[in-house]
C-alpha cells in the first residue's frame, strides 16, 4: 500500500493507494502522527478495500481527532462504503 501524506499548516491530507488490511494497517498506524493537526483528510479514491484492521486505524484516528479537530473521509469506493455501512462506522465518520 502507498501512503501519501501532504501537510498544509494544520491540515493533513493522506492519500491511500492499495489495500488497507491486516498486513498494511500497522504501517498506516505508525505513519499517522496527528500532533497539531486540526483537519485530517483521508483521500480513499485509490483505496481498493478496507478490512476490520483498517477500520481500527480509522477509529483510532477518529477518536484522536474528536479531541483536536475533525476527520474527513473522501472518495471512498463503494466497497469501502459498504464496509463502513455494515459496521455502523458510516454513522461515526464524516464521509464526503
Amino acid at each position: 500500500m502507498d501512503i501519501n501524506k501532504e501537510k498544509n499548516d494544520s491540515k493533513l491530507t493522506i492519500r491511500l493507494k492499495g489495500r488497507l488490511d491486516t498486513q498494511t494497517s500497522p504501517l498506516l498506524a505508525s505513519e499517522l502522527s496527528l500532533e497539531g493537526v486540526t483537519e485530517l483528510v483521508f483521500d480513499l479514491s485509490e483505496l481498493e478495500y478496507v478490512s476490520s484492521a483498517g477500520l481500527r486505524v480509522f477509529l483510532t484516528a477518529h477518536k484522536t481527532m474528536m479531541a483536536q479537530g475533525e476527520m474527513i473521509i473522501m472518495n471512498a469506493a463503494p466497497v469501502v462504503k459498504e464496509v463502513f455501512e455494515i459496521t455502523g462506522f458510516i454513522d461515526i465518520f464524516t464521509l464526503k
Binding site: 476490520s52 484492521a53 477518536k63 474528536m66 455494515i86 459496521t87
Partner: peptide, 22 residues
Amino acid sequence: DVTLKAEERQIGGLGLFLVKKM
C-alpha cells in the same frame, strides 16, 4: 453492537461480523 458511539466502539469481533455480513 454496531450502533455504539465512537468512544465506546471496540474493534474485536468486528472482522468476523464483516465476514458474516458480506
